[in-house]
């Protein structure tokens, strides 16, 4: 077991997650209790990863490994060391060639009995509560490990703590809603549909820890006087 990683997760990451997000979990009993297991979540912020790493009990923490983009997290030696050693990422090459097996590192992690976190949206979306299109790589992982439970988790509010591009994090409560695990049934389309339906259902049951959305502009009224300077 990597001592540096466990120390980082319990002494730095967990207190940070508590301070900035409150780290509320609905249905913690549905989280996997052993690997190999796949956890699937929506992605709006690095805070998603922070939360998912720290909501597991300490005995499992060192087993939890987020799948992350190699081009982003391995772009320099310092961030690369941080991402690999402390965060424990499983690097995937986003722009992988057709014949390259981009998911091999994730399969290795599952074979080693790790709990792998996948963000199937592929990148951090805007801090709205919409779920982007899901990439089907997670289905291939599930097919390779049909015994591994696939647990959907909806994370509400993380995009407000640290949205893409922001430098200063703002403390705001987030909620991680854990759904019932889904099993690989042999049908990719049905599997992806079940995953999306579960995430959408969790989203609807989430507390409204989201920004007020923009109401549509009223349609321009015809025949009205043109706005005059005031």
């Amino acid at each position: 077991m990597n001592v540096a990683r466990l120390a980082f997760l319990t002494l730095v990451a967990r207190p940070l997650a508590r301070f900035f997000t409150g780290a509320d979990v609905v249905g913690p009993g549905r989280l996997p209790e052993a690997g190999p297991a796949i956890v699937v979540a929506n992605h709006t912020s690095h805070v998603d990863t922070l939360l998912l790493l720290t909501i597991f009990p300490a005995r499992l923490m060192a087993r939890v490994r987020p799948v992350a983009a190699a081009d982003y997290f391995l772009r320099g030696p310092v961030i690369g060391w941080f991402a690999r050693t402390l965060v424990g990422i499983v690097p995937v090459v986003r722009a992988g060639g057709l014949h390259e097996d981009v998911l091999a590192p994730a399969r290795e992690a599952l074979a080693a009995g790790d709990i792998v976190i996948v963000f199937p949206e592929g990148t951090r979306g805007p801090a709205t509560d919409a779920l982007g299109p899901l990439k089907s790589g997670v289905a291939r992982l599930a097919a390779a490990f049909p015994e591994a439970p696939v647990t959907p988790v909806w994370i509400e509010g993380a995009g407000r703590v640290l949205p893409k591009g922001a430098v200063l994090p703002a403390p705001m409560n987030c909620t991680a809603l854990v759904g019932e695990p889904i099993r690989w049934t042999g049908d990719k389309a049905a599997f992806m549909e079940a995953l999306r339906a579960s995430l959408e259902a969790l989203r609807r049951s989430a507390p409204p820890q989201r920004w007020l959305s923009e109401p549509p502009d009223p349609p321009p009224t015809t025949g009205a006087a043109a706005p005059t300077a005031r």
Binding site: G22, N173, W211, L212
Partner: peptide
């Protein structure tokens, strides 16, 4: 923190 996370707020806030 609990209150501000649930209160009506916009991205600009």
């Amino acid at each position: 923190r609990e209150f501000l996370s649930l209160a009506p707020a916009r991205q600009e806030d």
